[in-house]
């Protein structure tokens, strides 16, 4: 579990963003904008000293868990895991190709270190509760982190899970909501406006923080605070921009959401220049 400095974390996030863009453009399909918004959080988890893991022993029972409930953002996960040494950056260039285990959505039966097969939104937090309950039963001291999309929060199952986590006082569970303001068919404000998550989830008895999730310093501080809470489940509402930091380019293309669209080679080139 590397613990990089703030500066090095920012550099790592940039490398991961480059990979996200490269692999999705090479695949010709996928969800780069959903991956880019989540990059600071995923980078901090894997490289900021928060998750204990060993790519050589990915099934160690004491490992911390990361479940990407918004599975369509797997390019950020594959890229971070490649940087972490689970597999190589060449491997993930096969994203979405026939025969490649780097599928369009995470498949835990085909890749080491993938904790859940996701892609049907709404299920990851419940799966995380299963991991957290098992950890308590077995007296193991691991943390389970689950990342959800803000559109995904429309699924009823998520709120069933929020209630259950409070019941079992799962202080070993952290939910991170990638609050990027968009879902597939438009802005969350227009599709299903859940307004502020913090008071709602607090009302369920959780510890909740709302931060700028594209600011590495804020992400690191929030993860530290969450680690210090030991009587209840924790949630971080990570306010981000979908496609950060290349939103201006996506706006110029006429689609700031850019949901489920790979960058064309030309757009990818511009994006790589902008973030590099």
């Amino acid at each position: 579990m590397p613990e990089l400095s703030l500066d090095d974390l920012k550099k790592k996030a940039t490398q991961i963003r480059e990979l996200i863009i490269r692999i999705t453009t090479e695949a010709g399909s996928g969800h780069p904008s959903s991956s880019l918004s989540a990059t600071e959080v995923v980078t901090a988890l894997y490289f900021g000293g928060f998750m204990k893991y060993d790519p050589k022993n990915p099934s160690s029972p004491d490992r911390d868990r990361f479940i990407l409930s918004k599975g369509h953002a797997c390019p950020v996960l594959y890229s971070a895991m490649a940087e972490a040494g689970y597999f190589t950056t060449d491997d993930i260039m096969t994203l979405r190709k026939l025969g490649s285990p780097w599928e369009g959505h995470p498949n835990m039966r085909r890749l080491p270190g993938i904790e859940a097969s996701t892609g049907s939104l709404g299920q990851g937090l419940s799966i995380g509760i299963g991991h957290a309950l098992a950890g308590k039963m077995d007296g193991r001291n691991y943390q389970t982190y689950v990342m959800l999309g803000d559109g995904e929060m429309g699924e009823g199952q998520v709120w069933e899970a929020i209630a259950a986590a409070e019941k079992y006082a799962l202080n070993n569970l952290t939910a991170i909501i990638d609050r990027n303001g968009y879902q597939q068919t438009g802005a969350t404000k227009e599709v299903l406006d859940l307004t502020e998550f913090q008071p709602k989830i607090e009302a369920f008895g959780w510890h909740v923080q709302t931060i700028n999730g594209n600011d590495m310093g804020e992400v690191v501080a929030a993860l530290k605070t969450a680690r210090g809470v030991n009587d209840k489940p924790t949630c971080i509402v990570s306010k981000t921009q979908k496609g950060y930091p290349v939103v201006p380019l996506l706006e110029a293309e006429g689609d700031p959401n850019y949901h489920g669209k790979p960058f064309s080679p030309e757009l990818a080139k511009k994006a790589l220049e902008l973030i590099g």
Binding site: G28, S29, E103, G104, H105, T118, G119
Partner: peptide, 8 residues
Amino acid sequence: IGEDGPSQ
């Protein structure tokens, strides 16, 4: 449906 894979 192709590239999106089995979950879809």
